[in-house]
């Protein structure tokens, strides 16, 4: 019996403006556990919509989204728990809370999941240490460099230890050196901790670093 894929899309369609804009047209996709997939494609091809659907942020008009074999939009599904425990998001512009410290930003992902403040703090610091930000843990997000911010965002995405990481242009706002450094960390995490990674990118170098690439054109894989 074959292993249940980490992520599976079956005939997913999504349109906007009353059906006039068809962002996704019956997309099928299977991503195995521990696999890294780069979704590439021109602007407006539906990459961001696809990532939003994968991350349960958008409900598809048709089709199914399965995480580890379970349909995320089935009745009774706790979407907040799915987002917290099964998915980790990394955004192009980091999306940190500027008035909070690096540690507090990471702890945000644990609110409502880990009741004890000390445990939240320990886990956040642990991830910041692993990503080389131990000495910047108490610095406000607003004073961190772009590379540091993205690593904080990565720590936030990983602190609940989700099996699937979703990244939207994770190196898009970084300089080349910081981007390569972050990419190396992502690859290491995928390899060492068995994470599944799906990222959207315009950067061929980032796409090349993934196990597989899928090109999206006009809402369908080419």
């Amino acid at each position: 019996m074959s292993e249940v894929p980490q992520l599976e899309l079956r005939g997913v369609a999504k349109s906007y403006e009353g059906g006039r804009v068809r962002a996704l047209r019956g997309v099928d996709l299977v991503v195995a556990r521990g696999e890294s997939l780069a979704i590439v494609g021109p602007s407006g091809s539906g990459k961001s919509t696809l990532l939003a659907v994968l991350g349960t942020l958008e409900r598809p008009d048709a089709g199914e989204v399965l995480l580890a074999g379970r349909s995320v939009w089935s009745a009774g599904s706790d979407l907040a728990a799915v987002r917290a425990l099964e998915l980790g998001f990394v955004f192009q512009l980091y999306n940190l809370v500027p008035v909070l410290s690096a540690r507090e930003n990471v702890e945000l992902a644990l609110h409502g999941r880990v009741a004890a403040r000390a445990e939240r703090r320990r886990r956040a610091l642990d991830w910041l240490e692993r990503l080389g930000l131990g000495d910047r843990a108490e610095a406000r997000a607003s004073v961190l460099s772009g590379g540091e911010r993205q690593r904080v965002a990565l720590a936030r995405a990983l602190v609940n230890d989700p099996p699937l990481l979703l990244a939207d242009e994770p190196t898009g706002a970084l300089d080349r050196a910081s981007g390569q450094h972050l990419l190396a960390e992502l690859r290491q995490l995928v390899r060492e901790r068995g994470k599944t990674l799906v990222l959207v990118t315009h950067d061929p170098a980032v796409a090349e670093a993934c196990d597989r690439r899928a090109r999206l054109v006009d809402g369908a894989f080419a």
Partner: peptide
Amino acid sequence: TREIGTLLAIGWTRAR
């Protein structure tokens, strides 16, 4: 707005 969207994306409930 974007920050609240982020909180929802990382698993915050609407009640929170």
